[in-house]
């Protein structure tokens, strides 16, 4: 039994679109996909990382009031959400794989500070940085 962070959620504009992007393009696996009425609890995980789930949630009522949901959708689309970092063994190889699947890099791999990093966004606007494990 391990303790610690189990789910970290991000807001997406469309769960079907996000699910397709994270699984088909980035290679994540579905962890949980459950509907309760119109509410959908959707989490994915990186294949080699069983303990942390990435929640893909839509800002919507009744969890959030309609005005706040609208504001959050706009903020996500403006890229105003906090940093997300993916750590991989080989940034260049990962980027090549992502690009072959149609992921548009916002920053191609750059070597600096003794490491390599790159960036991309998900369809909703969430910004990811890919860094190389040291």
């Amino acid at each position: 039994m391990s303790q610690g962070v189990a789910v970290v959620g991000i807001y997406v504009s469309d769960q079907d679109e996000a699910l397709a992007f994270y699984t088909e393009k980035l290679g994540f696996e579905v962890h949980t996909d459950v509907k309760n009425g119109t509410y959908r609890w959707l989490t994915v995980r990186y294949p080699e990382q069983s303990v942390v789930q990435l929640g893909l949630f839509v800002p919507e009522s009744p969890m959030i009031d309609a005005d706040s949901a609208r504001a959050l959708r706009a903020l996500v689309a403006k890229g105003a959400m906090p940093p997300l970092v993916l750590e991989v063994k080989d940034v260049r190889a990962t980027c090549a794989r992502f690009e072959s699947k149609g992921v548009e890099l916002t920053q191609p791999p750059v070597e600096r500070f003794g490491s390599v990093d790159a960036s991309f966004r998900d369809p909703s606007g969430n910004g990811w940085k890919i860094v190389q494990s040291r």
């Binding site: 504009s13 609208r70 504001a71 959708r73 706009a74 996500v76 689309a77 403006k78 890229g79 916002t106 920053q107 191609p108 966004r121 369809p123 909703s124 606007g125």
Partner: peptide, 21 residues
């Protein structure tokens, strides 16, 4: 905050391009 998220996402693409170069 009245702008359409879909438009904002496309404007973000322009911002990203400036960021990249």
């Amino acid at each position: 905050m009245s702008q359409d998220p879909e438009l904002l996402r496309r404007l973000l693409r322009a911002k990203d391009r400036m960021d990249a170069a």
